[in-house]
Design a protein around this nucleic acid. Structure first.
Lengths: 211, 211
DNA sequence: ATACACATTGACCACAGTGGTCAATGTGTA
DNA sequence: TACACATTGACCACTGTGGTCAATGTGTAT
């Protein structure tokens, strides 16, 4: 289907992917501009439409492409034997940050996709994502030992809290990360810093929640 | 300065404010459209520019107007004698939701303002907000009794956690709220529900964090 | 009834940006 | 040399932009 694009050399492909991710994670589908994408990727308008045919195809392809990248990373790199939810979260954070080193806006994009309402693409997004996303979200907790929590703890609330604390720390670093996308060293350092802070909050929560 | 607008009758003024809040909380400053605002508010293009002179003035006025509304509400309705941080948070949630009944997009707008990067307005926003916002954020914790926490607790992390859980619950209700903006009953019910859920999470956290 | 000040309208403007096209030009291979 | 295919970017018709202004309503003081 998109073999023209997929046969491109790795680096060029990633440049285009990242340019598109950036545009689509900054604007809603309707307001995102293919002109800006080609400018950012330093390719001609013609070749983009040669690869993808239309803005809509590009967007839907992008969604499936990066969703798969994320799913693959989880499947191959996550230790599914780990019963401690905090260690599991540490791993997920680590995997996400590894991906962000290659695809800075991957998760901003997925967040935007989740919120996208344009009638041009909503239906197709639902068809693809609703099934996959829910399934993989459930399996993320596969093998977790919930008996590690103190007895009187509401496990659902505990999981929510862990998730929200993770989100909160990410958000705390978001602005800084965006300010340093062009300085690879600074960007990666910030990711390390963020991961470390996440882990310190996990420790904090562990002391509260675990036996 | 904007006496023309401020002398308008209450309801018309709020209609215009809400139309502008909606547009500016859905789009960044550059992409927000004055045409959409006048259409939503059912007023003519001319009168909007008669009131505000330019898009930029409208935006900056809007920011100061709703910031003041929020600050006023906190100053007058908050019980500053309350030493329990959870009860303080309950009050803040309550006050925010009261305001959202009148101005649905008030806090979405303030969030967007915080993230706005357009060179057209960023400098003016900084001049106004950075001073005010930081000051009022500090005073929100005035009079809180932090000795209520267990001794070994990291108070800063505890406060962050409470904040992030509050944010998380809000976000959980966001989509539903947006789907029911035109059904006043449903909207208000959702707000009640959201406040109730926030309180149940506050209870959960209190058991973990308090002596 | 008249006159005047001011509120309000919406057609209109020059312009910027849109998704998409296609004739022309490069480029690598047989 | 010839041919297939990758790539370019000027170009298209179109939509939407912030802002203007002559025209029209409206309320009040005389």
């Amino acid at each position: 289907m998109y073999s023209l694009f997929l046969n491109l050399e790795e680096e060029k492909r990633r440049t285009i992917i990242n340019a598109a991710l950036k545009e689509f994670s900054t604007n809603t589908y309707d307001l995102a501009s293919t002109n800006k994408i080609v400018k950012q990727a330093v390719i001609s308008k013609g070749i983009l439409f040669h690869y993808f045919g239309s803005k809509k195809n590009l967007y839907l392809f992008l969604n499936e492409y990066v969703t798969e990248i994320f799913a693959d990373a989880l499947n191959t790199r996550l230790n599914w034997q780990e019963p401690d939810i905090f260690k599991r979260y540490e791993q997920i954070v680590e995997i996400k940050f590894q991906l962000m080193k290659q695809y800075h806006n991957l998760f901003d994009f997925l967040k935007m996709v989740y919120a996208e309402t344009s009638t041009d693409v909503r239906q197709e997004l639902n068809e693809y994502n609703l099934t996959l996303q829910k399934k993989s979200y459930e399996t993320v907790f596969e093998g977790i030992d919930f008996t590690l929590f103190k007895e009187h703890i509401d496990v659902k609330k505990a999981i929510d809290t862990i998730q929200w604390v993770t989100d909160g720390i990410n958000q705390r670093y978001d602005q800084q990360l965006k300010a340093h996308v062009n300085d690879e060293n600074a960007f990666n350092n910030l990711l390390e810093q963020c991961a470390a802070e996440a882990n310190s909050y996990f420790l904090f929560l562990k002391q509260l929640l675990y036996k």
